[in-house]
Amino acid sequence: MRAAVFHGRRDVRVQEWPAPPPPGPGELQLAVVRAGICGTDVEEFASGPHLIPLSEPHFASGHRGPLVIGHEMVGEVVATGPGVDGFAPGDVVVPGSGVSCGDCRWCARGQTNVCRRYYTLGLHVDGGLAERVNVPARISRSVGGLAPDVAIMAQPLAVALRAVRGITPEPDRTVAVIGLGGIGSLAVAACAARGVRTIGVDVSAGRLETGRRAGAGLLVDASRTNAGAAIREATSGHGADVVIEASGATSGLVTAMDAVCRGGRVRLVGLHRDPSPLDLTRLVLEEITLDTSKVHICDQDLPEALALLTAHPEIATTALDDVIPLDRLVPDGLERIERGDAGGKVVIRV
């Protein structure tokens, strides 16, 4: 089969690759229809491997060596493994991205995204940028009547929904979202769907336009203005009640700290690998809460994402930049996103 295989930094090859074996107990085999590119995929390509276990076996999945990337996918069920109920060949499903053990104390509490043996499709085991992939049935959900180009947004929207969970509309509440890429723009859309006032921040004109379409009430071009000051000016000098940092850039974290109000909250969604510039003293003196949001909880966030897309399919249209063939993954997908030329999600037609 054809697949996009990570071999090392700046070395992703669309090549022939062994098809997966028949699905094992509790598994589905999917013929992939659409696959999405995430910022994590781009980071692995540009500067990795950070998460992909090329040289040492992953502690949970056991995988070592080159692997098929892609953890956002929609596929048609072509085979089911032993013990699978509720799915049959021909069903179109979207899987979550993370696999949890189901037995540890965190899984028992419903915190499957911090499972002690958690691993991710397309990062720690072969993923969905391929013609076929095996996935656990328990993290898969039927897409109903959603078109593939809409359903492909379900997994990243689930991540965005977890990032905005607990944020409810209030007359004077403002949420700032820094970084309007795939997750950030969907976080704006999720806030807008709930009636929460949002301010979107980015340095890319294309991504700012995506943020506008997603429903941001105010847009700040951080390449031209001091974003923290602009957010304070727009909030009567107070700052934003919640700042979602989705860029993963050090400058984004600096802006988040500049923009958050006293008693507010900074929520980290983007992965930060550089040393942190956090002012811990200010966090304490102004009782600012710093928390994080990791991926999604499949049982909670994925069904909500599918329901939201069913009610508001325009969210997917807003977030979509382009649909490209698998053979154009590197130049028109990974490299284009790395350059900052993509205004939204780039989706692969497999």
Rank of each mutant, 00 (worst) to 15 (best):
A108H: 11
V114R: 14
A79Y: 12
V125F: 03
G127F: 08
V125M: 05
W106M: 04
R109A: 10
N113M: 12
R105F: 02
C107P: 05
R105I: 07
G127H: 03
A130Y: 01
E131T: 15
Y118V: 08
Q111C: 06
Q111W: 12
R105H: 10
R117D: 15
C101I: 03
Y119H: 07
T120S: 05
D85W: 04
C101Y: 02
H124E: 08
C107G: 14
V94Q: 00
D85Q: 14
Y119C: 03
S100G: 06
A79H: 13
G98K: 03
L123A: 02
C115L: 05
R132C: 13
R117C: 05
G83E: 10
H124C: 01
D103V: 10
N113F: 10
V93Q: 12
G128Q: 07
Y119Q: 06
D85L: 04
G110Y: 06
G127P: 04
S97N: 07
V93A: 13
P89I: 14
G102M: 01
G81C: 06
Q111P: 00
V99I: 08
R109M: 07
Y119V: 12
C115E: 05
N113P: 00
V99N: 02
D103R: 13
E131G: 12
G96H: 11
V93E: 05
G96F: 04
V94A: 15
Y119T: 13
H124F: 01
L129I: 15
D91F: 10
D103Y: 09
T112V: 13
A108Q: 14
R132M: 13
G102E: 06
G96C: 12
S100T: 06
G96S: 15
A130K: 12
L121S: 02
L121N: 04
V125C: 04
G83W: 06
L129V: 15
G96T: 14
G122Y: 00
G127Y: 00
Y119P: 01
W106A: 10
G96E: 11
N113K: 07
H124T: 09
V114L: 09
P82T: 03
V99K: 01
A130D: 10
V125K: 01
A79S: 12
A79D: 11
P82Q: 00
A130H: 13
A108M: 00
G110R: 09
R132P: 15
V84F: 04
P89R: 10
D126N: 14
G98S: 09
P89M: 07
A108N: 14
V93K: 07
C115R: 01
